[in-house]
Simulated scan of single mutants.
Amino acid sequence: MNKKILGGVSALAVGVVGTGVYLAVPAVASSSPSTTAPAKAAERHPGKRVRAARAARGIHGEATVRTKKGFAQVDWQRGTLTATSGGTLSVRSADGVTWQWKTDGNTKVRKGGAKSTVANLATGDFVVVLGRDASGARTAKRVIVPKKVPARATASPGPSHS
């Protein structure tokens, strides 16, 4: 009985995190910042801003999201770009977890709110990486270098948990 309850609670927690990521990703990836759009959205949906803020606390994870073609498994990570080498990005999160992300011609990069390229990414950049895990290799679909870096994002990490 306890295993069933624990499984249900775990599934609920994963669903909540996935929903938060699903709601936060369009806000992070938006290319046209507007001061009136968020205010109007907050008036129509007062809890949405709070949910997005809570989801923004996450630093890495996996979630199942609904797409136009069905469901998809999405990986995401926020952290510091520690290395770029031969189409591979190494990103270290605040908790010390380091993931490698492969890039290809389909990887879209936004740096400081403008379109950019993987070649323009620099070691030490704070990045948000979104992609998929295909047979053990994470492939970056989007890499975002925000204009403003959250204060806690640059806190020194604890021990590595690769």
Rank of each mutant, 00 (worst) to 15 (best):
Ala13Met: 12
Thr88Glu: 06
Pro146Gly: 06
Val149Gln: 00
Val118Phe: 00
Trp76Lys: 11
Ala52Ser: 07
Ala134Cys: 06
Lys69His: 09
Thr139Asn: 13
Ala13Arg: 15
Thr98Tyr: 02
Gly61Thr: 07
Val118Trp: 02
Val97Cys: 02
Pro38Asn: 10
Arg132Gln: 15
Arg142Pro: 04
Lys69Phe: 05
Lys102Gln: 14
Thr139Gly: 14
Thr103Ala: 00
Lys108Ser: 14
Ala94His: 05
Thr154Val: 12
Gly18Phe: 04
Val28Lys: 14
Lys148Phe: 04
Glu62Asn: 14
Asp133Ile: 08
His161Tyr: 01
Thr98Ala: 07
Gln100His: 03
Thr84Val: 13
Thr123Phe: 01
Leu12Pro: 01
Glu62Trp: 10
Thr80His: 09
Thr19Phe: 12
Gly7Trp: 09
Arg49Lys: 15
Thr103Leu: 02
Val118Thr: 09
Ser93Tyr: 00
Trp101Leu: 09
Thr67Arg: 05
Ala119Ile: 04
Gly86Asn: 13
Arg110Asn: 00
Arg49Trp: 12
Arg54Asp: 06
Val74Phe: 00
Ala155Trp: 07
Leu12Lys: 14
Gly158His: 06
Ala140Leu: 06
Ser31Gly: 13
Met1His: 06
Pro159Tyr: 07
Lys102Ala: 14
Thr19Leu: 15
Ala29Leu: 14
Val127Ile: 06
Glu43Arg: 10
Val97Tyr: 07
Leu121Pro: 08
Thr117Phe: 00
Leu130Glu: 10
Arg138Ile: 12
Val50Met: 11
Ala155His: 04
Ala39Ser: 09
Pro38Ala: 05
Ile144Gln: 11
Lys111Pro: 07
Ala11Ser: 06
Ser85Glu: 10
Pro38Arg: 01
Thr36Trp: 11
Ala134Tyr: 07
Ala140Glu: 08
Ala39Val: 15
Gly8Cys: 06
Glu43Tyr: 02
Gly136Phe: 01
Ala137Asn: 10
Ala39Gln: 08
Val25Gln: 10
Gly8Ser: 03
Phe71Tyr: 10
Arg54Pro: 04
Thr103Gly: 09
Ala151Ile: 03
Thr123Lys: 15
Lys68Trp: 06
Gly112Leu: 03
Asn120Arg: 10
Gly105Val: 02
Ser10Cys: 09
Gln100Gly: 04
Ala63Ile: 10
Lys3Ala: 12
Gly96Asn: 02
Lys102Pro: 03
Gln100Lys: 13
Gly112Ser: 09
Gly131Ala: 03
Thr19Glu: 11
Val25Trp: 10
Thr84Gly: 06
Thr103Lys: 09
Ile5His: 11
Ala63Val: 09
Gly112His: 02
Arg110Ile: 11
Pro26Thr: 08
Asp75Gln: 07
Ser30Gly: 07
Thr64Cys: 03
Thr36Leu: 04
Gln100Pro: 07
Thr117Arg: 11
Leu121Ser: 06
Ala119Glu: 05
Lys40Arg: 15
Thr80Glu: 08
Thr19Ala: 12
Arg57Asp: 12
Ile5Gln: 10
Val118Asn: 05
Lys40Leu: 15
Thr19Met: 13
Ser10Gln: 15
Ala140Lys: 08
Leu121Lys: 01
Ala153His: 01
Gly58Ser: 05
Ala56Asn: 08
Ala53Phe: 01
Gly113Ala: 00
